[in-house]
C-alpha cells in the first residue's frame, strides 16, 4: 500500500529560538493504525496539529495523498483528514445529531442545507459509534465517554481517509478506554481508514496499534512496528521510568515501576 501521509525533514518551534520537533521524517501507509506516544512536552499534539495544518512547519514538508498539505484548500483538506481533539463542549447546546452533521459543512448546498447523501452518511456514523440512541440529546447532557464517541462519529461523517485523534481516551474509565479503542480498530479494519492517535497508554497502544511513533523530549524519535519500538530499555530512555514487561499472547505489556513499587515477582499469562 502507498503512503497516505509523508513527512520529510519536518521541524517546528513555537518561537524562532525554540525547536520542539527536529528534522522528523516518516511515512504512514494507508490503512495503518499508528499511535504517537512520548512524554509531556515532546511535541505529540504539535505534530498532530502540523498533520492537519493547524500549524505551519518551520521547515520540511508534509504530503497527504502525495499532495503537499498547503496546496489543499480547507474544504478539500477536511475531505482528507478528520480530527478528534481533546474533549470540548460548546457553550451553546447543540444536539448530538447537529454536532455530527457539522462534519458535512463543506458539502452543504448554496442555502446551507444537507442533502440525502449527507443524512445517510451521518446516520451511518451514528450507527457505527453506537450514538444513534441519543441523537437528539444535547451534547452537554452526555457522559465523557459518550461525548467522545459523538466526536468520533463526527470525524467518521467527514468521510475522510485519515483520522487524527488527540488523546481520545483521556478522562475516560477503563471500560470506555477499551470501548473507544475497539471502535477505532473496527473503523480501521472495516472502513480501511488510516488512524493516527496520540496516547499516554502504551499498553492500549501495544494492543491495538500496528505502528508506534515514540517521540522523546530530547528531539529523538523512533517509528516502527509496536514490538520493535516498545521495550523496557526504550521506554526507560524516553519516559525515564523503569517498567516491568510481561506478555499476553504475542503482545507485551508494561507495568511502570515507581520508587515505591512493590516487588510483584514474575507475572505470567496464568495470573492474567
Amino acid at each position: 500500500m502507498s503512503a497516505i501521509i509523508e513527512v520529510k525533514n519536518l521541524s517546528f518551534g513555537y518561537t524562532p529560538q525554540n525547536t520542539i520537533l527536529k528534522d522528523i521524517s516518516f511515512e504512514i501507509k494507508a490503512g495503518t493504525f499508528l499511535a504517537i506516544a512520548g512524554p509531556n512536552g515532546a511535541g505529540k499534539s504539535t505534530l498532530l496539529n502540523l498533520l492537519c495544518r493547524a500549524l505551519k512547519p518551520k521547515s520540511g514538508t508534509i504530503k497527504i495523498d502525495a499532495i503537499p498539505i498547503e496546496s489543499y484548500n480547507w474544504e478539500a483538506l477536511a475531505g482528507k483528514v478528520a480530527v478528534v481533539r481533546q474533549e470540548f463542549v460548546p457553550v451553546f447546546g447543540f444536539s448530538v445529531i447537529e454536532t455530527v452533521l457539522m462534519a458535512r459543512t463543506p458539502y452543504f448546498g448554496t442555502f446551507g442545507f444537507e442533502n440525502k447523501t449527507d443524512k445517510q452518511i451521518v446516520n451511518e456514523a451514528l450507527e457505527a459509534t453506537d450514538t444513534a440512541q441519543f441523537a437528539s440529546r444535547p451534547l452537554g447532557s452526555l457522559s465523557g465517554g459518550e461525548r467522545q464517541r459523538v466526536f468520533i462519529a463526527r470525524a467518521l461523517a467527514a468521510n475522510s481517509p485519515v483520522l487524527l485523534l488527540d488523546e481520545p481516551t483521556s478522562f475516560l474509565d477503563l471500560k470506555h478506554q477499551v470501548g473507544i479503542y475497539d471502535l477505532l480498530k473496527s473503523t480501521q479494519l472495516e472502513q480501511g481508514k488510516t488512524i493516527v492517535s496520540i496516547t499516554h497508554d502504551i499498553n492500549l497502544a501495544a494492543q491495538y496499534c500496528d505502528q508506534i511513533l515514540l517521540l522523546g523530549a530530547d528531539g529523538n524519535y523512533h517509528i516502527g512496528e509496536t514490538k520493535d519500538v516498545f521495550s523496557t530499555e526504550q521506554i526507560e530512555k524516553v519516559f525515564g521510568v523503569r517498567t516491568f514487561v510481561g506478555s499476553l499472547g504475542k503482545e507485551n505489556f508494561f507495568i511502570p515501576l515507581g520508587k515505591f513499587a512493590k516487588d510483584s515477582g514474575q507475572i505470567t499469562d496464568k495470573h492474567i
Binding site: A54, V83, F88, P90, F94, T99, R154
Partner: peptide
C-alpha cells in the same frame, strides 16, 4: 455553527 466548537475544530470541519 462549526465555529461554536472552537477555531481548531471548525478548521478541521473545512471552515
Amino acid at each position: 455553527n462549526a465555529l461554536s466548537f472552537g477555531e481548531e475544530d471548525a478548521r478541521s470541519m473545512g471552515v
